[in-house]
Design a protein around this nucleic acid. Structure first.
Lengths: 384, 384
DNA sequence: GCTACTAATGAAGCGCTCCTTCGTAAGTGA
DNA sequence: TCACTTACGAAGGAGCGCTTCATTAGTAGC
């Protein structure tokens, strides 16, 4: 349970200030009376809280909404522009970055292509270019940044090192957080990309209503992210979700069914092969359909293990193949129903390629919120 | 995140009272000064809080500890005897019950044998006898009970119905909580037995230090309980942990390797067969060792799936076979090491047969604590 | 047995935060 | 222009925690 320390009067004020901020963030601009009702405080107390937050720059008055009966009420809003966050998706072929305000609203976005086999420094350069691009686009400086959250494949230790990377072996052992800290003078977070995608779906995607979510990255590689009790689940060694490593889960080679099917025209580059099979399956090609069936047979095994073990409310299908969700969703559901006690809803991701960047931003937002609500961790930057 | 309501002065006092109670419960009797330091409050405020709690019967003065310099300080303790809790383990062959105080200290214990194929009412009678026995032994009445927590096999819906029971098909659909409510005039909780065992290990067993725990019930049936982020994980439909249902996890038939091995003397009753194999394996019998090896080969598959997916700090081996943990632990660890990225510690349960009862009590304690710390849920019974 | 020392006690006074109450102000609609 | 509605702002009061200080009840040394 929570803290073990008793509270002062000032602690109470702090609590009430945070409650007010949260209410404003969740509901948008509010009048004093509305805010008072929302927080359960009396009007005069609410006023005092708002005045204090206002003088600190956290809150700002906006014009009253016209056309109401009675004296127009003053309205206040949370100043989300008080700080800025950057999310980065460090992928094999692209580095994506997005800059947002404290509400997680994206203000600028960039993409930097990189060769899959590019050396370390080149990839780090691409990160710097992507982030700098966002800053330029939004006319901000690195000093405006509060938090930079980056997502990439592999097992990432709590201090931001990449302790294991199956996809990019050269990254194993890299102190990614350290390198990013050298680039940008703000707090740095690093997390596994599938976990960030899961977070994005749970915060602003198709799983907003769920507290227990399994995110399935289906694509040329398989990955998973778990949201348990509304929080990203990392595990003791930050290695949670690596079920693809288990041969019996039959995930590792599952994409091969799509890549090597007879529905792929000869000469197709390997990264496009699966897409051809999926497209042919959508058109009813029996050969492709059979390949998709075998793919789903394998996919269902590991997925059923996850569902039986965790009993999530929702399974979200994301990643490259989720563009063909119409071909995959129904048959996958059928296969799960045969194996599970309670089959969860299966939904297709709607965030697409932005999933990881947006998840990184949500991760940074969460980090700021944690700082808000545990002020003993130190003050937040303040621009005013 | 927590509540969205602002706080009153009285809310602050409430918070501080709860902080004081928690400190007393965690550390045992404390002097005012010690309590003040522990809670971060000033001495006078602490005094006032303690006086209030004292008048409510939550706290009591104890004789000062002698032999100290200066004026002897008054000491106070939490009155754990203020309320009583009962934990019940409804198993196939036995119904166990234990009665405890609010700190979870067991004051009385009983066991009622039942035939595995006994009809419903007979089993319910056994429950009543077991709990009444505890009350008699500890000279309490049903009115002293605050919470009764029961554990049994199967999937148990949030309202305390048994929605699925593989072990006792006749129980499927039973409104167990309802039946228990008819017997005893207190709050009733029902939960899956493996989950309660997991909780017991995490609270007072071998996994006290861990926030993420996988509990493996190894015995004639397989079961699991998950502790994630310090809390029991139930899943959306309360069906979490049922990985044994998946054929590919190779758990369902795993015990057969032990039951049907050539190391079992002919004519052994089926419930003793596995024990013979395990005992023979401990003595170095190669036939038995091979059977145990095949058992562990199967066990390791599902376990590896859980470990890869959740990356727990500890895996606890409990249930009937865990008496032979010395034969199982090492070889299981070896098999997991071959499959997992990070192999967690594997520990044998030390709570033995009491695991589920004690877990039920811990579950009831948690429930009371939740009520403590969310007083808006309603007042707790008070004896004084 | 007396005195010095130690540490806790209890009462008094202060400041902060929230509450309720009331008269006043600034709009809309007839 | 007037009645009505709704919000504003100031005043007075209560509760809670803090600091301060004289007092009290023990132990240790002579």
């Amino acid at each position: 349970m929570a803290d073990l320390r008793g509270g002062d009067l000032s602690r109470l004020r702090q609590l009430n200030s945070l409650t007010a901020i949260r209410a404003l963030r969740e509901t948008g601009p509010l009048t004093l009376s509305a805010l008072a009702e929302r927080t359960g405080l009396s009007r005069p107390s609410t006023k005092e809280v708002v005045d204090e937050l206002s003088s600190l720059g956290w809150v700002e008055e906006v014009p009253p909404s016209p056309g109401t009966m009675g004296r127009p009420a003053r309205r206040y809003r949370f100043r989300a522009e008080n700080g800025h966050l950057v999310g980065v998706d460090i992928g094999g072929h692209n580095v994506r970055a997005a800059l947002s305000d404290l509400d997680g609203r994206v203000l600028a976005e960039t993409r930097q292509p990189v060769e899959p086999d590019a050396p370390l420094d080149e990839r780090l350069d691409a990160i710097e270019r992507a982030v700098s691009g966002c800053l330029t686009l939004s006319r901000r400086t690195p000093d405006d940044l509060w938090v930079l959250a980056a997502g990439t494949t592999g097992v990432i230790s709590p201090d931001g090192r990449i302790s294991f990377s199956a996809a990019v072996p050269a990254w194993t052992g890299l102190d990614l957080a350290g390198r990013l800290r050298e680039m940008f003078p703000c707090e740095i977070l690093v997390e596994n990309d599938s976990r960030l995608a899961a977070l994005a779906e749970a915060r602003r995607g198709v799983a907003r209503d769920a507290r227990d979510v399994v995110f399935l990255h289906v694509g040329r590689r398989m990955g998973t992210g778990l949201i348990i009790d509304g929080k990203v689940h990392r595990g003791f060694g930050a290695a949670a979700g690596e079920i693809a490593m288990l041969p019996e889960a039959r995930w590792f080679d599952a994409p091969d069914h799509l890549n090597t099917s007879a529905a792929v025209p000869p000469g197709t580059p390997p990264e496009d092969a699966a897409g051809h099979t999926l497209a042919a399956a959508r058109d009813g090609d029996p050969v492709a359909l059979e390949a998709v069936g075998r793919y789903l047979d394998d996919l269902a095994v590991g997925t059923a293990a996850m569902v039986l073990l965790l009993d999530p409310q929702v399974v979200v299908l994301g990643g490259g193949f989720s563009r063909s969700a119409d071909v995959l969703l129904g048959p996958l559901r059928d296969r799960l129903e045969r194996r599970c006690i309670r089959t969860p809803e299966i939904r297709a991701s709607t965030l697409g390629d932005e999933c990881v960047v947006v998840g990184a931003i949500d991760y940074a937002v969460e980090h700021v919120e944690r700082r808000f609500f545990t002020p003993e961790a130190g003050p937040l930057p303040l621009s005013r």
